[in-house]
Design a protein around this nucleic acid. Structure first.
Ligand SMILES: [Mn+2]
Ligand SMILES: [Mn+2]
Ligand SMILES: [Zn+2]
Ligand SMILES: [Zn+2]
Lengths: 136, 136
DNA sequence: TATTAAATGCAACATTGTTGCATTTAATAT
DNA sequence: ATATTAAATGCAACAATGTTGCATTTAATA
């Protein structure tokens, strides 16, 4: 959603390189979470290793977050809330539609804190599958 | 929990082969969910491809379930409830301890159904991270 | 014991992810 | 503007993960 990714990057103490900006623009330009393979094919001119390092760096610094929905296909989406290298806060559901296969961040409702007796819960994430609003 | 995996396999219309039984025993013998790499090293005499096919088959037929907690490391645990090839029901939390790195299925509390307006939620899963009861 | 569809082992392949290192570049100071 | 420097990049090489095809073996059934 942020317009100026360069400033956003510098805020997180990351160098605002053209590679990083185009990766952020690509992910943010997708309405759903974006599969790694799609990012790679959309940015085929970008070195594969650099893309991996860029994605890891952006996740580590709270600019994007990673969603694992199925084996060997990671999805990425920009962070909406104020995430940092310290912690990601994603009080929303990652919904995967079994029909259109899209993975969307559903932030319609705030998720209340999860309590597990005897455990210290520091972070949690809900992954749901079913049929999305567009496919119903 | 099941003692006789051979019968369990036949119930699901799967041939009760020694390979499948030993894979089930291995996973069930681990108190936490078991990383793929650990299963493989524990059963090093078993062909790698056969192990992949066995795990997929057991997941597909509701004997074990797969937990994705971090990239490129799938974890497996036996199904406690009555899962089938039709659907897996896991109304429990998959908890990953940041200290001991164990992944456990926490079924202390029944999870109420997840409601998302405009969406048909068919299944959902909660993944939490923090410090487990043993490490606190 | 015979039959047969499923399971297995092996080879070959494809994808995903990592590491080392020389070169380039963004940010900062001069 | 220019110099400095730590970070980022591109490339090669490697390691791990996962898939497919096919000949052989085997569990289940007749
Ligand atoms: Mn998210
Ligand atoms: Mn579980
Ligand atoms: Zn859909
Ligand atoms: Zn622990």
């Amino acid at each position: 959603m942020a317009a100026d990714w360069s400033n956003e990057l510098r805020t997180k103490n990351l160098k605002a390189t053209p590679n990083r900006v185009v990766v952020l623009e690509t992910i943010a330009g997708n309405n759903a979470a974006m599969a790694y393979s799609k990012i790679q094919s959309d940015l085929s001119q970008l070195d594969r290793v650099t893309l991996y390092r860029t994605l890891n760096s952006l996740v580590d610094n709270g600019l994007i977050h990673k969603v694992l929905v199925e084996e060997n296909e990671a999805f990425y989406a920009t962070c909406s809330s104020n995430c940092s290298s310290e912690e990601h806060h994603h009080q929303h559901v990652h919904f995967r539609c079994t029909n259109c296969k899209e993975v969307t961040c559903v932030s319609s409702q705030p998720i209340n804190q999860l309590e597990i007796p005897g455990y210290l819960v520091q972070n949690f994430e809900i992954q749901a599958t079913g049929v999305c609003n567009l496919c119903l």
